[in-house]
């Protein structure tokens, strides 16, 4: 039984190996440029990092993402590509040797593809001249103010005391101090 099964599988294995020897270099060449759109998804967390690292947006701000790209725990990465170039960015993404990032990414490193995709995305961002991200805190404050204004408007119709105005009115008529 054992031998017959081995014999049966052998041609399949040879075929697989042959396919891989041709296909792998082709894939690598394709991936070397990186996809900026996939990089954006990785950055924003729309697609999870394959090793479980946090998406960049959790700590870093970036132009082109609106209020959502206003995180301020780490430095803003809008100028990263312009300052360090493709090689610099690739090196940083490989090691991520910053005290607060090491703790996360030494055990959950970015894969080769992810690094390339992110670099491509940073390159694309550097070309854009989008307005700096509006501060999230500012937007929330504005929202709260609008809600307060609505409440205040509704409150205008509220009964504001009946007795005290009567007393004040008589005091005023008599020129008395309240």
């Amino acid at each position: 039984m054992q031998t017959s099964r081995f014999r049966f599988n052998l041609p399949k294995r040879i075929l697989t190996l042959a396919f891989l020897s041709v296909a792998l270099p082709v894939f690598c060449a394709l991936a070397a440029t990186g996809e900026p759109e996939r990089g954006r998804q990785l950055y924003t967390g729309a697609v999870a990092m394959s090793n479980g690292g946090s998406p960049c947006i959790a700590c870093h701000g970036l132009t082109g993402l609106g209020s959502a790209g206003a995180a301020s725990y780490g430095p803003n990465l809008s100028d990263l590509y312009a300052n360090y170039g493709e090689e610099g960015v690739a090196a940083v993404l490989e090691s991520l040797a910053f005290p607060s990032m090491e703790a996360i990414y030494t055990s959950r490193p970015l894969t080769e593809t992810e690094r390339l995709d992110l670099t491509a995305y940073f390159a694309r961002t550097a070309e854009q001249t989008a307005a700096p991200p509006t501060s999230l805190a500012g937007s929330i404050l504005l929202g709260v103010l609008i809600v307060f204004a609505i409440v205040a408007l509704l409150g205008l119709r509220r009964l504001k005391g009946v007795r005290q105005p009567l007393v004040d009115q008589v005091r005023k008529q008599r020129g008395m101090q309240s």
Binding site: L159, V162, Q164
Partner: peptide, 10 residues
Amino acid sequence: HNPDLPTMDD
């Protein structure tokens, strides 16, 4: 926010 309630002073 019932606007028609008497106040404590009333």
